[in-house]
Write a protein that binds this DNA or RNA. Structure first.
Length: 561
RNA sequence: UGGGGUGUCGCCAAGCGGUAAGGCACGGGGUUUUGAUCUCCGCAUGCGCAGGUUCGAAUCCUGCCACCCCAGCCA
């Protein structure tokens, strides 16, 4: 497979790793991890991180762990841990049995906390949440020390033990690191290490614990326990790195991974924020996490994106520290490139208009041969039934050509039926409203597989035989938001939800050969785009197809300007 | 002068003192029974701005400017 041969592009993180290997750091080993919190589905931004972490492990002959950062049972759920594993696997990565949970380390995390207390590096604080905030100071002014800051080791040990044993209510006390309330870095102003959470059932540890460690405390230790060498995270954690290092420097743990930050992905016309995606799902703006309009891995999969195209996308966008917003065109290009190569061609009529071929014999349908791929003979051919009555797309007929460049069918004009004959339109039948309901045509029997003598046929249109067509529902998707950057418009992003992001067409006709298509199977509907049979939905007894992406269309683009 | 970051083509992004890669997008030509694909050509005398060092600066120095992140007992 060509993807496996692709050389991953270099980036600044790989440069750092190259240097570490050259200088013999970590004995030349490379270990990364992908650490999602199971509080939502993975999205395209996570794909960037997954490709980075697993890609590095693969290329450097190292390892990449899948570790759930499950320190906040309030927001987390088993549904998400299952979905995340499914998505990482689907993206083509393998954690090889190294599946971990931060909650696996709760006991060790607790023991290291006791160690910090014993060394006077942590204390139990009685301040309430509001007071802690007040004492923290502001961005420009230093904070004040908690009145509890100078408790004795014995008292701290006793209080922490009683916190663990459930003696205190939620919020009554926290364990804090004893660092520096005057630090210009707010993260270093005696950050909270442990909080009390009663009455929640943790999806992994049940009711075993009522104190839960914070991210800033859990993450460095989890990394170190797993022997991670390079801990890759996004830019907003850059300010947390001093704390990451402080934790590891102040406990007796032999390993000290290096945290390296890179910028997160932003994609135009969508949002890549788990919190906001959760809102879209919960408030019903979309039909679940796997709605084909969602930038989630599950949504992209259902839309018809291949994992190969997503990996390709991640390679193309690169990894840097600069803020970036990638155009949809890049993602679209990736899936078009993949599907152009791999998707077999089919014909489907989305907006049917009936055509009767008057000089074609009745009751003598024939079977024509059609290539499954115009450039790849190895994909073979198929039979397509042709008959006296066919459907063409309404958009492929106009009574009068609007300009000399129009090459579809017009009254009195000729057009090539893809994989079949040239037809001429002789008559336009209309209903009482003046709407076109049928075309009367004749065909030239001498044009199958060859061009007619003495005249040039400019246009080619697709079609489907009326008697053999399968009725289908086709869903056309457009961008979820009608603003390139819905999150930074200074208003609620939900105001920019595109009301026309889904068009459902219920009376479409697809060619017979797709009768036994499998869920998820992908096709190019010639001249329309790439479509896949929906994984889950059948509407009545009609199959449902999702449009993954249109074909590139320089013609309509030019004419719409 | 609160701290931490980032600024190279419309969007990504190489570049690491020797004279601006590549991809997407865009414009144009060719082939074509998909207005697709494929193919060829074009697309930064310029690297946030201003100075300086140097034979030579996107790369080094100085000073500005713009944008992003941080005051959860979220991650």
């Amino acid at each position: 497979m060509s993807v496996e041969e692709t050389v991953s592009p270099n980036n600044f993180i790989r440069h750092i790793i190259d240097e570490d290997i050259k200088t013999g750091k970590n004995e030349g080993k490379v270990a990364t991890r992908f650490p999602p919190e199971p509080n939502g589905y993975l999205h395209i931004g996570h794909a960037k991180s997954i490709c980075l972490n697993f890609g590095i492990a693969k290329d450097y002959d190292g390892t990449c762990n899948l570790r759930f950062d499950d320190t906040n049972p309030h927001k987390e759920d088993e549904e998400f841990v299952d979905a995340i594993q499914k998505d990482v696997k689907w993206l083509g990565f393998d954690w090889g049995g190294r599946l971990y949970f931060a909650s696996d380390y709760f006991q060790q995390l607790h023991d290291y906390a006791v160690e910090l207390i014993k060394n006077g590096k942590a204390f139990v604080c009685d301040l309430g949440a509001d007071e802690v905030r007040e004492y923290r100071g502001t961005l420009k002014e230093p904070g004040r020390e908690s009145p509890c800051r100078n408790r004795t080791v014995e008292e701290n040990l006793d209080l922490f033990k009683r916190m663990k044993e459930g003696e205190f209510e939620d919020g009554a006390r926290v364990l804090r690191a004893r660092i520096d309330m005057a630090s210009p870095n707010i993260n270093m102003r005696d950050p909270t290490l442990y909080r009390i959470r009663h009455g929640v059932i943790h999806h992994q540890t049940g009711e075993k614990w009522c104190i839960y460690p914070m991210y800033d405390y859990t993450h460095p230790i989890s990394d170190a326990l797993e022997g991670v060498t390079h801990s890759l995270c996004t830019l907003e954690f850059e300010d947390h790195r001093p704390l990451y290092d402080w934790v590891l420097d102040n406990i007796s743990i032999p390993c000290h991974p290096r945290q390296i930050e890179f910028s997160r992905l932003n994609l135009q016309y969508t949002i890549v924020s788990k919190r906001k995606l959760t809102e879209l799902v919960k408030e019903g703006h979309v039909d679940g996490w796997d709605d084909p309009r969602m930038p989630t891995i599950a949504g992209l999969r259902r839309r018809g994106f291949t994992s190969r195209s997503i990996r390709d996308f991640c390679d193309r966008i690169g990894v840097t520290k600069s803020d970036n917003t990638v155009e949809m065109g890049v993602l679209e290009n990736c899936i078009r490139e993949d599907l152009n190569e791999h998707a077999p061609r089919r014909m489907a009529v989305l907006h049917p208009l009936k055509v009767v071929i008057e000089n074609y014999p009745e009751g003598h349908p024939e079977e024509l041969d059609a290539a499954n791929h115009p450039q790849d003979e190895s994909m073979g051919t198929r039979k397509i039934p042709f008959g006296r009555e066919i459907y063409i797309d309404r958009g492929d007929f106009l009574e009068v050509a609007p300009n000399k460049k129009f090459k579809r069918l017009v009254s009195g004009g000729e057009v090539r039926l893809r994989n079949a004959y040239v037809i001429r339109c002789n008559e336009v039948i209309k209903d009482n409203n003046g709407d076109i309901i049928e075309l009367r045509c004749t065909y030239d029997p001498d044009t199958l597989g060859k061009n007619p003598q003495g005249r040039k046929i400019k246009g080619v249109i697709h079609w489907v035989s009326v008697t053999h067509a399968i009725e289908a529902e086709i869903r056309l998707y457009d961008r979820l938001f009608n603003l390139p950057a819905p999150e930074s418009a200074g208003k609620d992003y939900k105001e920019f939800i595109n009301p026309d992001s889904l068009w459902t067409l219920t009376q479409c006709f697809i060619e017979l050969s797709m009768a036994d298509a499998k869920p998820g199977e992908q096709f190019q509907f010639e001249r329309e785009g790439y479509f896949c049979l929906d994984e889950a939905h059948v509407s009545g007894n009609r199959p449902v197809f999702n449009r993954t992406v249109t074909l590139r269309d320089t013609w309509s683009k030019k004419n719409s300007m």
